[in-house]
Write a protein that binds this DNA or RNA. Structure first.
Lengths: 344, 344
DNA sequence: TTGTATGCGTTATCAC
DNA sequence: GTGATAACGCATACAA
């Protein structure tokens, strides 16, 4: 392929014996251009493979077709965290199909330090997607309060559009399953870190619906894991075992990552799952079905999460005042596998 | 925080009773500016939080402090693939610390379709990082042959700077371990898809060093997995078991993802690891140590891979003709865990 | 040492 | 319908 010589609206105007402005008009489908010249210009542009230069365009107009991503890297999270990177992946696919481009928001450009907001203004991004954010991050609030469209799949904040799984319903159906299908009574739960809204919701739902279904909560077996990962699950069980010999029949775990650690710890202590204790996770990460035994869990639809966030953001970018619900709850599904076992 | 009113070099020049050009000079540390005004300008800029607008700057100058990322999504790969996203994460961290910004290269901007190369020219990225690419992707070659600095941690191509793990040495040390510590003789290997250079290198090294160390290759147990994931490993074992009852004492597997599937299949068929057969993986993904039994494997230093790629790219971006080696091989480490067991 | 003028490639507002 | 022309915010060569 020949490396195309540099073209601008001027060169192509010249080649077509037209005025630069006219080219711009057909490019932006603005103003009046005769159908004839329109076609002619479009054809030529396509033939020579001309693409308007982003920077110049940005200089003049508002739309940049770019969105900034906030992906806070902390406490076991980051691109390596499969749950979030999966959502991001789907978000990315959808947005790219719509012609948008994704950039990670940084706090430094060349030698200039800047806040999220400054970066966004500077880059003139059309919108922002918060994949995972930290409630202690001041910069985030400045961003959310600004009039740059923001969407998140993680944080729940007044004024921020968020797409999340229906955590409460997930726990409700789990507990209903425990009661009605598993026919169990005594339950416990390994919570995730409770500063996370999602984990908090799951804990609250657990408290609420254990009542509703008349389940018995074993208080000694309700533990808040120290973090998000496998290890925190493992440690939570160590903690539990040291405190009490009084094990529940079924243990809910706030996330699969933690649940896998739980399962491992149980196995290491010779406690059989599901015979001696049954375990139910949350998320349905890829590995959940590959573990031994395969984990019963509540599936979050990662694709729907990412895609829906993308849709919301596009709506907002096209019309910042669009009347759309601030938080959208997506349905979840209970996936029955082998860490639970209904009575025969 | 007050949302700063819009500033340009003009407004800040005005505020300081200086000429716009002067501001520009101190910003770019070019031309002659007295130390006094320099300080004054810098101080003011910092105070009001002024940041030069990228688009305008791009229009004039070369450097954009931005790099494009090629992350081909195929055959089980994508952001969800923890190995690659982990490398990307480290690459990203390093580059951001240096003030660069990362954007995913897309093939469509607004309503314009464009090639990788066009996108890069258009955005004026300083460089490109190919996290994972596809050899069949024509657009990639155009990019690599252009004079945009490119670095990869995946593809091996003439003219492309690449940072990879020393696959050959990894396999060599594995085989030495099998021979000298494990005292085993009969070996087999589940290869990864051989169109991948990395997997090809591992296969070739396996062939070469099994000779060197006088190991016996069980041909019926040398199988090319159909893909990258857990499932392909599982299927490879199904395949192997159907073909031969003649199992090797030790099975190398081209990657941990595949190896975990292998382990599961073995377990499902009641074959004990490491008692009946020993297994060694490659990569040391996070989950390798959490599996039951924990996987013996060759660790690739993902952080070094990402960081080194970042360093190489920066060197190239600062001086495109820098004399640096085209391919850098990073050392790997054998991690002994429980899928292998030396004789007592 | 500091200020001025011009161009970068667009878009948008006018006249024609 | 079409063609000039003025911004947009910065860098740079050149004049002061």
């Amino acid at each position: 392929m020949t490396v195309s010589k540099k073209r601008t609206i001027y060169t192509i105007a010249e080649e077509l014996k037209l005025a630069p402005g006219t080219i711009s008009k057909v490019l932006n489908q603005t103003g009046n251009v005769s159908e004839a010249t329109r076609e002619r210009v479009l054809a030529h542009i396509k033939e020579v493979g001309y693409v308007p230069t982003t920077s110049a365009r940005m200089l003049k107009s508002k739309k940049t077709y770019s969105v900034g991503i906030v992906f806070t890297e902390e406490t076991d999270i980051g691109l390596e965290h499969s749950f979030f990177s999966s959502i991001l992946q789907h978000f990315k696919s959808y947005l790219e199909k719509e012609g948008y481009e994704l950039s990670f928001i940084v706090k430094k450009l060349g030698k200039h330090e800047l806040s999220y907001y400054e970066w966004c203004m500077n880059k003139r991004v059309d919108g922002v997607y918060i994949v995972v954010g930290n409630y202690n991050d001041k910069g985030l609030y400045e961003l959310i309060e600004s009039d740059i469209p923001c969407v998140s799949t993680d944080m729940l904040l007044k004024g921020l559009h968020t797409v999340v799984s229906d955590n409460e319903e997930g726990i409700r159906m789990t507990l209903e399953y425990v009661k009605k299908e598993l026919k169990l009574d005594r339950i416990g739960m390994i919570f995730g870190p409770l500063w996370s809204k999602a984990f908090l919701e799951r804990r609250d739902a657990y408290v609420k619906f254990s009542d509703v279904y008349g389940l018995t909560r074993v208080k000694a077996c309700e533990i808040e894991a120290e973090s998000f990962g496998f290890t925190s699950g493992y440690n939570a069980i160590l903690d539990m075992l040291s405190k009490s010999k009084d094990m529940p029949e079924c243990l809910l775990v706030a996330s699969d990552d933690i649940a896998l650690g739980v399962l491992k710890a149980l196995k290491d202590h010779g406690i059989n799952v599901p015979k001696e204790i049954q375990v139910i996770g949350f998320d349905d990460i890829t590995f959940a079905k590959h573990f031994t035994p395969p984990l019963t869990t509540v599936r979050q639809d990662r694709m729907a999460l990412g895609t829906m966030a993308a849709k919301q953001l596009i709506t907002l970018m096209e019309d910042p005042d669009a009347m759309i619900p601030e938080v959208i709850k997506l349905p979840v599904t209970l996936i029955r596998r082998e860490t639970t076992q209904p009575p025969k």
